[in-house]
Amino acid sequence: MRSTFRDAAHLLRPAALLLIGLAVFLVVRAAVIPKGFGKYGHYRAPFLETARSKPIHYAGQDACVACHDEEAKMRAAGKHAKVACEACHGPQAQHADDPTSLKPKLPDVATLCARCHEKDPAKPRTFPQVVTAEHNAGAACNDCHKPHNPHLD
């Protein structure tokens, strides 16, 4: 029995090496993994606090509709009903907090409309799209289309 152990004793060395490797790995792992990692999911739980502390940029649909009743009604009746206000007007949280002193700038229609409606074969055929250079001959889009309800009467 003793001789069997003696002849197998060398196997303890790679085993010890593997265990030392594993131990070093576990120590490094414990030292470098950020605190709270994995508490809610595959991310650092304290990051939620960091995210929460960042300023809010978007006011949200309800805040816009609360004051801009007329535009909201036009929009709801047309094809842009599901396009959020801030998708075109940009983030407006500051304006919502202080509507009088911070007035948002009107978007530039020449680039704004083309962002969605410029012709592209990758878009579904039913989606309204035009080659802007040919379509409006330099005129602004909102000369004909009302942006909140773009359908031509």
Partner: peptide, 18 residues
């Protein structure tokens, strides 16, 4: 060698089995 120089016949048999 990892510090072991036991290459007796019995040790080699153990190596072979493992």
């Amino acid at each position: 060698t990892l510090g072991s120089d036991n290459v007796s016949e019995a040790a080699r048999r153990v190596d072979d089995k493992v």
